[in-house]
Design a protein around this nucleic acid. Structure first.
Length: 593
RNA sequence: CGGGGCGUGGCUCAGCCUGGUAGAGCGCUCGGUUCGGGACCGAGAGGUCGGAGGUUCGAAUCCUCUCGCCCCGACCA
């Protein structure tokens, strides 16, 4: 490919609204352009990388017998009403009407459509299992799109769905997909981790997210340094860390103390072992949160969470524990009206109609302090077991880096940041049941199919690859998803000899199966071409110039190691092949973990 | 949704406070000199100053409304 004909405009300056590295570099490299908030053009170079990654995904999924199909982006409301999600899916679902006033939406995901397809085409257990996938544009009207391709509103996704006769077979397929995903991300040569994740209240089954590790990742991951327990912090099991009870084992009766000004000092207070404040010992504080949880049947209830003062509540755990569909903190004014105390003096005692959850690190604790639900007063001597009848003891806190892993009891949590690029999920019969996707079993009885779903964010993965592969000069594409393999720089295109050699090398390399971008643009200084080549970041850069040819040599440079080799033009194909083999070998060794 | 900021040529931005001929650098076109890490000279093309309304002799600039974009927040009871 001749670069003079390529649709590309590299930028010397960073566009001002690009806030993450992948977005900055891909915009500067002329790969993507922003069309609207969270909506991007994928220009030819980016599209090549996208297509290459899609191809990897296809190959690995087809190895496991998955079938590719393509569903429409526009979906009728009826299907969503059938599954019940038309009303539950929030504002992320972009809805609109056609000229007749019929409701439609842009598909953010395709459970409804695929379930409809399968229920109309599959009747017998003999046809199962079946695993179908598509690669397609999705639209989710995010509250706040950001981070370029990593959190766009429109993006390309691989979504796959499997259908099974029973739970056991769905579980089997889950692990088949789990391993397929490990191969897929392994082939990219990026550092990634499969991560145990929150599966939400529905189904309650297990799920893994696949994360590409990158400092700019939106998700926090904790990984045990001894066993292989790795999980999203939303889900990470927190070890039980009981407080030593204050008061030498004397269980005090609960009483309240005037403590004006003790607000928002829980953290500090908890750190001061023997400190007192207005006569109130602060060694053992508790903190308290009030939530309103809403459920699938549109009912709602109040939920209270009680934790050690120095611990952080994990709202996802609280939400799942009560089985809520959605949960939010009670607005301050409402909470003040409900408890009768100003912020800083609310507490869990004697609140009616509140499901009370107590973090398990408070098991056996007594003599705790807590808000007294009376402004300027705190209780001292709180004993959850005694004072909070009907409370549930559970893990509701956020685990923290460095804590002992409760799974193996030996290792400690290490923290990572990750970009979620894939997820495998067991759906169960949520959709097949509500939408009547059934099969006839061997007894001729109607049974709902058990489903699994499997997603990979294609465009997000490509961005994540960039997040993990760049230096100050530009991108460093891993071979498998590089837009081109070789950037052939023709430094003197007006020099007939140089031009002849460069053109011949382009043809030879392409004949040998390499993808070559030949920079034969005229009137550009060598420096400018080098800068552009670094920015675009193809794995290999071949240089042909008058200066080199005078000595009978051309050059090959590795974008990553910056190693340069000089040799005769006729050795180019062999040199590129050798470099490719070496790069792919290193990639295999680095792949996976 | 709450708070803050920004909309001026393809990109980065100045001009606005204090109203009076729309600017710079990069990029683009043409000519020339250069030519191994973003060269230089000269000549050009390209802008309803996001949009609407208002104030004024006169608005990129002041006022009102509106649209778009960006950032922060939306867990410490």
């Amino acid at each position: 490919m001749k670069q003079s004909k390529l649709l590309i405009q590299t930028l010397r300056e960073t566009p001002k609204d690009a806030d993450v590295v992948s977005q900055q570099l891909m915009m500067r490299a002329g790969m993507i352009m922003k069309l609207a908030a969270g909506v991007y053009d994928y220009l030819p170079l980016a599209f090549r990388s996208i297509r290459k990654f899609e191809q990897i995904v296809r190959e690995e999924l087809e190895r496991d017998g998955c079938q590719e199909l393509l569903m429409p982006t526009v979906q009728p409301a009826e299907l969503w009403q059938e599954s019940g999600r038309w009303s539950f899916y929030g504002k992320e679902l972009l809805r609109f009407q056609d000229r007749k006033g019929a409701d439609f939406c842009l598909g953010p995901t395709h459970e409804e459509v695929i379930t409809d397809i399968v229920r109309r085409n599959v009747r017998s257990y003999k046809q199962l299992p079946m695993n179908l996938f598509q690669i397609q544009g999705k639209f989710r009207d995010e509250i706040r799109p950001r981070f370029g391709l990593m959190r766009g509103r429109e993006f390309i996704m691989k979504d796959g769905y499997s259908f099974h006769v029973d739970d056991a077979d769905a579980d089997r397929e889950y692990w088949v997909m789990f391993n397929a995903y490990k191969r897929i991300f392994g082939r990219l040569g990026v550092k990634f981790r499969p991560v145990e994740a929150d599966s939400g209240a529905i189904g309650g089954s297990f799920t893994h997210e696949f994360h590409v590790l990158a400092g700019s990742g939106e998700d926090a991951i904790l990984s045990c340094d001894s066993c292989d327990y790795t999980s999203n912090i939303e889900k990470t099991e927190a070890p039980c860390l009981p407080v030593g009870n204050h008061g030498d084992g004397f269980k005090l009766k609960r009483d309240h103390f005037c403590t004006p000004g003790v607000i928002g000092q829980v953290e500090q207070a908890a750190g001061m072992k023997d400190a007192t404040h207005n006569g109130m010992p602060l060694a053992q504080t508790s903190k308290f949160f009030l939530y309103r949880a809403t459920f699938a049947d549109e009912s709602s209830k109040l939920v209270g969470a009680v934790l050690r003062g120095d611990h952080e509540v994990n709202p996802v755990k609280v939400k799942n524990l009560v089985g809520a569909l959605d949960m939010e903190m009670m607005p301050l004014e409402e909470a003040e009206a409900f408890t009768g105390a100003k912020s800083g003096f609310m507490g869990p005692v004697d609140l009616k109609g509140v499901q009370m959850l107590v973090d398990k690190s408070l098991q056996g604790a007594f003599n705790l302090t807590c808000g007294a639900n009376k402004t300027d007063y705190h209780h001292f001597g709180l004993d959850p077991a005694r004072d909070l009848p009907g409370c549930t003891l559970a893990d509701i806190r956020m685990a923290v880096e460095g804590e002992v892993c409760p799974r193996c009891g030996k290792g400690h949590y290490q923290a990572f940041r990750g970009i979620e690029v894939g997820q495998v999920f067991k759906l169960g019969i949520k959709y097949s049941k509500s939408m009547g996707c059934t099969y006839l079993d061997e007894q001729g009885k109607d049974q709902p199919m058990v489903m699994g779903c499997y997603g990979i964010g294609i465009t997000r993965t490509v961005a994540a690859v960039v997040e993990q592969n760049y230096d100050k000069d530009g991108i460093q594409w891993p071979w498998p998803v590089a837009p081109y393999h070789v950037h052939l720089l023709n430094l003197d295109p007006s020099n007939p000899e140089v031009n002849e050699v460069a053109t011949r090398l382009e043809q030879e390399l392409e004949a040998a199966g390499f993808e070559v971008l030949h920079d034969e643009r005229e009137g550009m200084s060598p420096g400018a071409k080098f800068k552009d080549a670094d920015l675009l970041g193809f794995p290999l850069r071949a240089t042909v110039g008058a200066k080199g040819l005078k000595d009978g040599v051309v050059e090959l440079r590795d974008r990553r190691t910056k190693e340069v080799r000089k040799f005769k033009p006729e050795e180019m194909v062999a040199e590129v092949s050798a470099a490719r083999d070496r790069i792919l070998q290193e990639l295999r060794e680095a792949g996976g973990r």
